[in-house]
Structures are given as structure tokens and as C-alpha cells.
Design a protein around this nucleic acid. Structure first.
Length: 395
RNA sequence: UCCCCUGUGGCGCAGCGGUAGCGCAGUUGCCUGUUAAGCAAUUGGUCGUAGGUUCGAAUCCUACCGGGGGAG
């Protein structure tokens, strides 16, 4: 059950502001989705996530299936109540793990490539990866104990049904940016078949239509594949769409634009796993409504912190004697209570509060940034806002 | 007083005849649907001091200095 209302469209772009209504509350879009992979936002309590005015939390099917198992989550009433999060929720399908535990495992390949000249050879056949993909599904070796598990589209739907999120994703294959065109094409057909199977199984499970299901658009960085996926999946009875897979850093906006120009306008579009300021601006401009990303929390735990003047590494020696807040005018808990020197000390002393305080600030930064994008769509100043933010952040 | 062990970059250690490495710390960078409080790169020493043996010594010998232990 999901209702999506567009409040305002920005002339000359695909950007729009709207509201998604779920059984657990509404989401004002564009919105950043906070990631709580294992029914926990790393380093934070649910109360802290609430304090940040996060609107929606996303957990992962693969992780919760392995631990503690979907039956326990179901008994808890879903992963939201289990972790004391009572707002809107989403689960990812486990499809990303086909990539992260497959082709990308043990390598330095990430879903966003730096430039167009990146090597295109398939590097997926090396180094003991934990996932292999077939037409049937994805076979995983648990990263926890090495045991074998098969995920099919049907299985993913069954698990996600028990995890109980408001919005779920069809099972897809996230391809590597290093995969050749031919592989991307073949994979895209498979992801389409999996979308049909996901839809069919979900329909059987969710007879009262409590849960919304999003289809996932793949196609790598190839315009023809992206457009083909948008046409074919866009014609199916999904409640919304995820845009997944690999991109070129310079071209996320374009790739997303190809897709969003085709997808039905009245359904929400979620850009999967993207969370850097520039990327979000480009994606919003190109018509995306939702974004989830681990970047704010992971980078925070690793000492990289967002400021309006760009990223800083709080572990740098210069901050040891800097008794100003991370950002003078920031209203987050971290900035209103602590100095750069203190946070730098916590990192050096290996105190877990370091990751907590840094995560709070980074999440606050990104959540407020996307809120500001929404406000600027509503008042028509989006492009100017984007321009001035980027000029300062990336100077 | 005698005997034994020991002295290598900030700390903890390896090397035991052919011109020094490792871990941690330090410094810096990376991180985009979390295998990630992670990963990568990198700055520091001439091997307690002074002699000697040797073509060549951190590595062998002697003395001294510092640390630890034992016997009286």
C-alpha cells in the first residue's frame, strides 16, 4: 500500500517534490533513506536516528536472513519494531550482494567507477568470491560461517515479506562496472525474468497489499540497456522503481535521466546506493525521489566528515588542537556539544563514541542537504541552490 | 664480589658474518543498495659506547655503560 503524490515539478528538469504515504507514516521527497543493514544503523540507537529526523530506514534481506533469520524478525513484528524504528521502512532484496560478494569480492571495484577509461575486462572469475549467479538465482556462501545458501527471486520475496518493510525491492543482479557489454545485456534479461518472478511471488504472499514492491532498473552505463530496462520494467505493475547497478562517476545524472524520462511519472524512483552530495544533486535534477547510502555512516566511522566547505578527515593532526565545532553553524548534536579536538581524540583513542558522533553529523548533513533540495524545488530555486552548494563544497 | 641473560626506528620484537626488517603508534589517502570501528600508501634506525678480528659485523672477541635474573 503506497500512495505517491507529486506536489511540484521543476520546469526544465525532471526534478519533482512529493509525498509518499505508507502504513507507517509519510515521506516527503526527495528524501535520503538511512541505512540500517542489520536492523541497526551502525553506531547509532533508533532514538538517535529519530533525533536526526530521518524519515525512513532501509535494512538488508541477505544480512537479516543469515542473522538472526527472518522468522525471528517476523515474530518481532518486522524489522522496524524489532529495532524500535516505527516510521516507514524498506528492505533491499539481497541483489546487491550478488555483486559485493561476487564480482567485487576481494577486489577494489566499487559500483561507481571514477572515469570512462576504467578497464572493462571481466575480473569476476578470480579470488574465491562468495556469490555465483545463475538464471535460477544467486548462490551465496555466508560471509559469517561459509555455509551455502541459494537466493531466488521467490525466496527473496518470502524473506522480505517476513521482514515486513513497507517497501521492498525485486530481486535483481547488480553487475560490476567492469563487466563487458555482452554480460550486462544478458544480465539485464535475467533481471527482467527475476522481476516477473518477484512480482508473481509477492502477489501470492501479500494478499492484502500491505507491502509495496519496487522493480530494479539495471543496464550499467549503457544508454540502450538502461532505456530498454526502463521500458520493459516500467510497463509492469510495480509500485515504484529502484535504479541500481554501476555508473560512471561523471555520468550518474545522465544515466538516471535516460531511465526517468521513460519510467511512469506517477511512481517513486529510488536511486540505490548513492549518497555523495554531487551525485544526489544530479540525481534529484534527473528525477529521483529517494536515495539510500551507507556513505554517511561508514565514512563517519572512518573519520571522513562532511562540511559545507568539503570533506575533512578529522583524524588529521591539525584537528588535535582545534577547539571549534566541526561546523560553526551546524545544529546537530555533535556540533552543539563537541569540538573537533575532542572528536579527533576519540578517534585516536579508539573510542566507539567517535563513530557515533561522526555518524550523527554526517547523517544530519546529508538529511538536511536533501531536505534543502526539496525546499528549493518547491520554491523554484533548485538550480541556484545546487550551483552555490557545489561551488563551496567542491572548491 | 662473581655468574648468566639482555641492549636494533616512539613502543614491542625479528635478523645472528655480506652494508637492516615486522607489528603497533605516527603521517596521508580511500570508502556510494555495508564481507567494512575497514582498507591502502608512507615517514622514522644504521643496530648501547669504545676498541679489535675479518675483504666485509647489528651479527665474532674485549672493555666499559644501562636493564633483568641468579649465587654469596
Amino acid at each position: 500500500m503506497l500512495k505517491f503524490t507529486i506536489e511540484k515539478k521543476l520546469d526544465g528538469t525532471l526534478a519533482r517534490a512529493g509525498v509518499i504515504e505508507t502504513l507507517n507514516g509519510s515521506i516527503e521527497t526527495p528524501a535520503f533513506v538511512t541505512v540500517g543493514t542489520k536492523a541497526a544503523v551502525k553506531a547509532l540507537t533508533a532514538e538517535q536516528v529519530r533525533s536526526l529526523n530521518a524519515q525512513v530506514v532501509l535494512a538488508n534481506t541477505y544480512h537479516l536472513y543469515l542473522q538472526p533469520g527472518e522468522d525471528i524478525i517476523e515474530k518481532a513484528g518486522g524489522f522496524g519494531p524489532f529495532m524500535d524504528w516505527h516510521g516507514p521502512t524498506m528492505t533491499d532484496s539481497g541483489g546487491f550482494q550478488a555483486f559485493s560478494l561476487g564480482a567485487a569480492f576481494g577486489s577494489h571495484v566499487s559500483k561507481v567507477t571514477r572515469n570512462n577509461d576504467a578497464p572493462l575486462e571481466d575480473v569476476s572469475t578470480t579470488k574465491g568470491q562468495l556469490a555465483t549467479v545463475t538464471d535460477e538465482g544467486v548462490e551465496f556462501k555466508s560471509h559469517i560461517d561459509g555455509s551455502k545458501h541459494l537466493f531466488t527471486p521467490e525466496r527473496s520475496m518470502e524473506i522480505q515479506w517476513k521482514l515486513g518493510a513497507d517497501m521492498i525491492f525485486a530481486f535483481d543482479e547488480c553487475t560490476s562496472p567492469t563487466a563487458p557489454y555482452e554480460y550486462q545485456k544478458k544480465s539485464l534479461d535475467r533481471t527482467y525474468e527475476w522481476a516477473l518472478r518477484s512480482l508473481a511471488r509477492h502477489e501470492e504472499l501479500d494478499t492484502e497489499k500491505k507491502q509495496s514492491i519496487f522493480g530494479v532498473i539495471q543496464g550499467g552505463r549503457h544508454q540502450d540497456l538502461r532505456e530498454h530496462a526502463a521500458k520493459t520494467l516500467g510497463a509492469l505493475d510495480f509500485d515504484g522503481f529502484g535504479i541500481g547497478g554501476s555508473f560512471t562517476k561523471d555520468d550518474i545524472g545522465n544515466a538516471v535521466g535516460w531511465v526517468n524520462a521513460i519510467l511512469p511519472e506517477n511512481k517513486p524512483r529510488h536511486l540505490l546506493g548513492i549518497g555523495e552530495p554531487m551525485d544526489i544533486f544530479n540525481a534529484v535534477e534527473a528525477g529521483c525521489d529517494l536515495f539510500d547510502c551507507i556513505a554517511p555512516t561508514r565514512m563517519g566511522r572512518h573519520g571522513t566528515i562532511h562540511t559545507a566547505d568539503g570533506r575533512i578527515n578529522i583524524k588529521n593532526s591539525a584537528f588535535m588542537t582545534d577547539f571549534a565545532p566541526i561546523e560553526q553553524d551546524c545544529t546537530c548534536y555533535t556540533c552543539t556539544h563537541h569540538t573537533r579536538a575532542y572528536i579527533a581524540h576519540l578517534f585516536r583513542a579508539n573510542e566507539s563514541a567517535a563513530g557515533t558522533l561522526a555518524s550523527i553529523h554526517n547523517l544530519h548533513f546529508i538529511l538536511r542537504l536533501v531536505e534543502a533540495m526539496r525546499a528549493s524545488i518547491l520554491d523554484g530555486s533548485f538550480l541556484e541552490h545546487k550551483q552555490s552548494f557545489i561551488a563551496r563544497y567542491y572548491k
